[in-house]
């Protein structure tokens, strides 16, 4: 069974805050689910050697056409900002001063 500390670690990596009761039910559910999907370990071979890598398909590096609907959406993008000042998205300061 996966430990409570592991669940806590996964929550941190996933940037999701969990409550204590939720932590307990997740510990049980995640253990059961991992037990079930773990049956793939029986598959032989090496993923590195035997699974063909998908390749990127790139478009031409040119601006969107004049009439592309993607050009017209600047105002809409700004309108969706949770907090804004003029046309700027207001975000939290990332580098804090040492205290």
């Amino acid at each position: 069974m996966i430990s409570k500390e592991d669940i806590q670690k996964l929550a941190e990596l996933s940037r999701i805050k969990l409550t204590d009761p939720e932590m307990e039910s997740l510990q049980k559910d995640i253990s059961n689910i991992l037990d079930y999907v773990g049956q793939v370990s029986a598959v032989e071979g090496s993923a590195e050697k035997d699974v063909p890598l998908n390749h990127n398909v790139m478009r031409e590096d040119v601006p969107y056409a004049e009439d592309s609907q993607l050009n017209a959406s600047r105002e809409d993008v700004i309108a969706a900002f949770p907090r804004k000042e003029n046309d700027f998205n207001v975000v939290r300061k990332i580098i804090q001063k040492d205290e």
């Binding site: 996966i2 592991d6 996964l10 990596l13 995640i30 991992l34 999907v37 773990g38 793939v40 370990s41 598959v43 032989e44 071979g45 090496s46 993923a47 590195e48 035997d50 699974v51």
Partner: peptide
Amino acid sequence: YVLSAGYYDAYYGKAGL
């Protein structure tokens, strides 16, 4: 979990195969 360094091969890698 299945993409974490320690378990990637056992889960995601095998699923790809």
